[in-house]
């Protein structure tokens, strides 16, 4: 039950952060609306990555470099 509450907002948060970054870059470089579209898609990918890691029990830091080689197998996203 805790898992359901954890992953429900994960995808939305990542998409929101991606969209906000894209919106900020658009306002800065005046490239509206292309950056927003690209970063929203990237945010969707990040959200899927997060959900995949949580459900596989990796925690959040699966992209981090392994200290020893025995753990590197777990680290492939």
């Amino acid at each position: 039950m805790g898992l359901a509450y954890r992953i429900a907002t994960e995808l939305v948060a990542a998409v929101g952060v991606g969209g906000l970054i894209g919106y900020g870059i658009d306002r800065w470089l005046e490239t509206r609306p292309w950056c927003m579209i690209v970063f929203t898609l990237l945010g969707f990918a990040a959200g899927m990555l997060n959900i995949f890691r949580i459900t596989r029990g990796y925690g959040y830091a699966a992209g981090y470099r392994a200290q020893d080689e025995t753990k590197s197998g777990d680290n492939a996203p």
Partner: peptide
């Protein structure tokens, strides 16, 4: 769980 998160995201 992955598919649940995808569907739940649509509702949000």
């Amino acid at each position: 769980w992955v598919s649940f998160a995808l569907v739940e995201a649509l509702a949000i």
